[in-house]
Design a protein around this nucleic acid. Sequence first.
DNA 1: GGGTTGCCCGTTTTT
DNA 2: CGGGCAACCC
Length: 772
Amino acid sequence: MDLFEIEEPEWVQVEKKEPSKPSFLNDLNKEQRQAVETTEGPVLVLSGAGTGKTKVLTTRIAYILQQQKAMPWQILAVTFTNKASKEMKERLEKMIGADAFSVWLGTFHSIGIRILRKHGSLLGLESNFIVLDSDDQERLLKQMMQEAGVDIKKYTPAGLLDVIQRWKDKGLLPHQVTAMQNSGFCEGRALWFYERYQERLRSLNAVDFGDLLLLPLALFQSHPDVLQQYQKQFHYILVDEYQDTNVAQYLLLRLLAKGHGNICCVGDDDQSIYSWRGAEVENILSFQNVFPDALIIRLERNYRSTAHILGAASHLISFNQGRLGKTLKTADELQDAGEKVKVTGYWSGSQEAEKIIAQIINENKKGIRLSDMAILVRATFQTRQFEEVLIKSGVPYKIIGGFKFYEREEIKDAVAYLRLILNPNDDLAFLRVVNKPRRGVGPQALETLTKTAREKRISLFDAIAWAPLKPLLRKTLDGFISLIKQSQEKMQSAFPAEVVRFILNESGYIQMWKQDKSVESQGRVENIMELYTVLDDFKSIEEFIEYASLVTDVDDETSSDQLVVMTLHASKGLEYRHVYLPGWEEGLFPHQKALDESGESGLEEERRLAYVGITRARERAFISFASNRRMYGQTQNALPSRFVDELPKDHIILSPSLNKAFSMDMIEPAWSKGGFFEQNENAYFEKEPNYGNKSKWSRESLNTSDYEINSYNAYSTVPRQIRKSKRIGKRVHHELFGDGTVIKDAGDALEVSFDSVGVKKVKSAFLEELFT
DNA sequence: GGGTTGCCCGTTTTT
DNA sequence: CGGGCAACCC
């Protein structure tokens, strides 16, 4: 959709005028202006949180165009997310109008795909190649591993995929992986698998996400003429979120910028939180080594947060070593320092969730919109507790980071049907839908088909005609073929949405979900309806497939006022008036696994994550931790995160209950260092801290409400969620359906026989237990 | 071929 | 505690 669909316009002779300084420069501060006006040569803009990096990038593009230094299509601007590229495009359009659409502006991956569509044949790719998602990749690897007789319990496909992905991130094709870089994974056979995997992809005419960067790189390395073409085209290169680039991306950029060296990278080493995905902070740290004459500009003026919030975040991040170093300052020194960051301890994770939501409800009543507040968690499982409370309290909410639209089973199935219509030889799509809904095509039948396909070197779809099949199977598969053929015919005349509707109806796919009695099936049907709507925006199915393979979520611009709950990772680049940061406990945040696997550098990345979290807040930040957290079905004792200790006391305020427990001085000695609390005991509550005897933690103090949670009373009426065990036979109440008896436990939901409306399936969260 | 049971394992996840 | 998946049974 957004992916460079615009052809390069013809060159038009423009009347040469002496360019004047445009007015949009007046909106910039001194450093921002320098970053915009220094168009020639390498520039690294170290842009702290909230210092206006998107503004700098868009203004820089506008400036280059306004100064007539280049035509729009001679500018390459890359971002990481579709969201970021969309935002930049919109902002740019506001500044310069339709020219914005001629700029090569998009994600690294979308640019890679564009290059490969054009030149991929040089690497043996047909231009209609498909892009696999991680599910497809894993399934492929699993199959290969099983064929090779690997114990996939010991060595998981996901593990192998990870190893291969790391090689790709580093820009290494199989033959470029040295013995040194080989992995011990699977007795050192990972490289062998990598080689086979690439071959397999090629025979499927498919690439994976990593290939979208790796293959253009390989193309440039093996075909200097192609590289030269792009070097000549792009006079100016701009890169967003440079701290998140991996080696392959860095190499690509370096090749493209070779010559003029007009490359401007914007990033913040303190916000590098994706190293586990192959991002190399090293890229930003060593920018000056790679481009010795690089100009480095620091944007330190923060236009987002109050002084206390910045003070807390800055002090915390200062514990990290190896930073390029920046000090964020508020935009206006004279302005009110705002409110201190509030730190609270709770008895349990559920109490934490309830109190936070109660406070949010309260703030909402005082006029803060729900969409101005956010809850940012470390791990996705934390969202569940919040969701439960949100459902009960009726607060409109949205959880980001759960299942993405295009990752949903039903959407992927629908897309697979479309892929098959476009190209019946797409074996992966074939395998996905040939027995969905069930047509009686099981492993046995597939085995026969695969064998025939291999012998004749044809696709599975074509193999149907040749394979020795039993009459019944023959009939169903011939029917399947004719269904695809009919859809292809329909495609000639009908809109994409109609084609999907046709195939999903005729194949019985929709029916399959409508008949399914599980709780989710209703939602699945709704998602498919949503898909029809999305498809209306596309002119062709090809275009849609391309879009769907690069985009993970539909941007639903729901204007309705709702509260978001998301992971810290997902929050990067966003801002809210109030930000809640729950779960600051050792083991959860910093996450134990990060510490175990990456030691000190893992800890630093966790700390950067904390920094990202705090700096999302404009006016207020609330940090909290719980002493008891349910994990893996067990309640575990937890200690406050060391990051809590690292907060500067001048910029934080402890909640009343914590204040009772600690004098301000006590925060400094770091309670997590084990001084007076010992782990694995119910330390907070049963041990007497050995400092004075007036203040100590207690259940009572933690249970008292904190701050001004006045409307918390509304909360005491919240029904207790009914317990998982022995649900059947329980008498329950539902707001809409009235009273009833639980007759069946269906995992996430319960089947209840209601006295007045009969049997219904409902989520247990909507039920209140009746005690009779 | 399809449904059921029982066991294992458990971060973050831009494309 | 719960989801996902492989082995197992009908």
